[in-house]
């Protein structure tokens, strides 16, 4: 029985080494969003704009990784946080950023690359 148990542990140790890490490219997302932490105050809420439905697992992963990267700032889909003056755009398509900003009345603060943009909604 002891020999079988050790063989089991050996199987498990091999299996652990084969497990995929960072399936959702979290480390890359954290690096990408890091500059936002230096710009947006820690107590601020941030609206989140995406061009994909959040029911999609990858789109959900992008929202959740933004929430993780930017906490303790509260990041929510912009329609659920309409008063937010800071907005993170997270676009997977080649949507024209300037057009997106104009459509929502936003100013581009920084284009972070890979479709991620920090916007600000200025007071009129």
């Amino acid at each position: 029985m002891a020999v079988l148990a050790v063989a089991g542990a050996l199987n498990i140790s091999r299996g652990l080494r084969l497990l995929e890490s960072d399936t959702f490219l979290l480390s890359r997302r954290l690096d990408l969003l890091e500059p936002v932490r230096g710009i947006v105050p820690a107590g601020a809420g941030i609206g989140y704009l995406s061009d994909r439905p959040l029911a999609d697992i990858e789109a959900a992963a992008r929202l959740f990784s933004a929430q993780y990267a930017l906490a303790p700032r509260l990041v929510l889909p912009w329609q659920r946080l309409p008063g937010a003056r800071w907005v993170v755009g997270d676009f997977t398509s080649q949507a024209p950023i300037a057009g997106m900003a104009e459509k929502h009345g936003l100013r581009v603060v920084r284009d972070l690359g890979e479709g991620v943009v920090l916007f600000h909604k200025d007071l009129k």
């Binding site: 020999v3 652990l16 080494r17 959740f64 929430q67 993780y68």
Partner: peptide, 29 residues
Amino acid sequence: ATLASLLLLTPAIAARASGHPHGNWDAWS
């Protein structure tokens, strides 16, 4: 046998933990 199991598993668990610093989905989300 217990020592052997621990010696087999500890490096694998440590490697997994260090290569996976944010944990699984529910951990970071």
